[in-house]
Design a protein around this nucleic acid. Structure first.
Lengths: 148, 148
DNA sequence: GTTGACGTTTACGTTAACGTCAACTATAGT
DNA sequence: ACTATAGTTGACGTTAACGTAAACGTCAAC
């Protein structure tokens, strides 16, 4: 175990290969290259090979967090692109805040829709079960229960 | 108002055109044709024109309900294909029940994921707001708050 | 005798986030 | 030399549920 990389000094590493990052974050190398294609990452190169530094790794972490929160890669790029190593991140924070509020509204609507579907499904399931138990509430109910 | 069809006898109608159904269910005629392509509907023809009867309309209603519940058209087709005008719908109900339970599990997982995203988002939003109000909890917190 | 509403078929386009090849290149170990 | 391992680019494929455009028919109204 621990054949490839000493995981011990994972945090002390200066650079990472694409597969190291892929393994660490449980994604594929393809995905990482895809993020680069979309302009979300621009690692150094050593010849042809990509070399990722700590900031790249941090960006990747942020990308994945953004995805978990349901942002599109385009959104994430817009937020990340505002990052300015010098100066205060005020603008970035403001944009992020705006986008986050939008996203929150979206998610809350989705949850609402899902909740409705869930309760409708539960009722349909109950009707199906009742039918199969021979209780058959009424023929009409059974018919309506055909699609849960 | 009521220029086109006497909506009064909507329930008494024997047949419907594609646009009538599209209007009634607030979908496009394209969608209805699409469902036919996928084998979910097979209306009569009068020459080239499609003619929908009450059962077609009922099927369409079921299709739309299935979609609201998050079923794929493929699933819906599988359930609908089991409909047998003669005999008891036992088999259909059983399959529908199985699929509904699966779907319920899926939706519940989705809701869980969304709930997690929502609370994470809320926290991120709070951190952004705090930062912008100049309270700046800590530099590190602000950095972590960059992507809400 | 033409406009306009409604209908038809065929077929390619859209969206997102990658997956899946194919065909190399480069390096290291045996 | 041979093989294994890791990396590269490029390009097409996937999934779902339609949208959109082209190009045409048909019928009644004006």
């Amino acid at each position: 175990m621990g054949r490839r990389i000493k995981k011990v000094d994972a945090e002390a590493r200066e650079t990472f290969t694409i597969t190291e990052l892929a393994d660490e974050f449980s994604i594929t190398a393809r995905a990482i290259r895809f993020y680069e294609d979309k302009g979300l990452l621009e690692p150094m190169r050593c010849g042809l090979n990509r070399v990722y530094r700590r900031r790249d790794r941090a960006r990747l972490r942020l990308i994945l967090r953004g995805r978990r929160l349901g942002f599109t890669l385009r959104d994430i790029k817009e937020m990340l692109d505002l990052y300015d190593p010098a100066g205060t991140p005020t603008r970035q924070v403001q944009v992020t805040l705006d986008k986050s509020r939008e996203q929150l509204v979206k998610l809350e609507k989705q949850r609402h829709d899902i909740d409705e579907a869930i309760s409708e499904l539960r009722q349909g399931i109950a009707e199906c079960e009742a039918y199969l138990e021979g209780r058959k509430p009424r023929a009409a109910d059974a018919a309506r229960a055909r699609i849960a």
